[in-house]
Design a binder for these strands. Structure first.
Lengths: 141, 141
DNA sequence: CTGTGTGCAAACTCTTTGCATAAGT
DNA sequence: ACTTATGCAAAGAGTTTGCACACAG
């Protein structure tokens, strides 16, 4: 008897037409269990294995992409050669902690980009990504 | 007798302490010759080869990273597994044309991000990336 | 000359794929 | 049963590295 989350992982999967297999349910459970999460495929795979969920890295990749396509997850471009995923799919922006490789939501409701021009003729805006890179403050250079 | 660009590629390289070798000069020439450019290592390599500049892909990668470190170039995170570079190093934001894989500067001087919160204690903002993804308008879904 | 840069091919990392086996409905 | 998903290991893309040769100062 949980709170707040009316749809269990299984419901969530059914809604998207994805068969609720062991692995998909287990991964969905990890991902959507509590709060928003930011991670790479390897991080999630390690976590799953650590919790005794038998799943291969290939399946983690497959599943993550299926989740993205189903709108359950979002991909965040941070660095080349490392794909980050985010469980929060609604419009929002991120801090990226350099060196640490961590993504953090910027929890400000009214964060906006001002004076954005129209996209070129015949084009429409798909999405706006704002990434604020931060690093430990240095005394002085 | 050019205009506007007081420092030749060679000057530019000297300023940064990089030896003006054939390849580096040739690449700098391609890159900083005219206007701002957005490209990947492979694109630049192909262009160099196409113009008869003998340079290996490895050297292109080396050179690009050296240029980034020297502040002559900037890296732009767009998609995982493809590193984009940008010859414009000053603060500005981009359109990314999906499907086409093209980056375009957003030429609006007063484009800003409003209501940005303070970074966490002891951290400072390194850089703010804004990427506006655009795609051909679809009739209706 | 002396040290740095270059090119090549091999190595590496992250990610995807092909195919036989296992699981869901 | 029938179909789709999984796991493994191998393949693939992009990027990096090690080392002998070449070039700039």
């Amino acid at each position: 008897m949980r709170e707040k989350v009316p749809d269990s992982p299984i419901e969530r999967l059914r809604m998207t037409g994805l068969r609720p297999t062991r692995q998909r349910v287990a991964l969905a459970d990890l991902l959507f269990g509590r709060g928003d999460r930011h991670f790479t495929a390897e991080m999630l795979h390690a976590e799953a294995i650590g919790r005794g969920i038998p799943v291969s890295l290939a399946t983690v990749y497959n599943t993550l992409h299926q989740f993205v396509e189903a709108g359950l997850l979002r991909e965040v471009a941070v660095e080349s050669s490392r794909t980050y995923f985010d469980t929060k799919t609604s419009s929002h922006f991120h801090f990226f902690i350099e060196g640490e490789g961590t993504l953090v939501d910027i929890d400000v409701p009214d964060l906006t980009v001002e004076n954005l021009p129209e996209p070129p003729e015949g084009m429409e805006i798909t999405r706006i990504d704002v990434l604020v890179r931060i690093a430990p403050k240095r005394e002085r250079l």
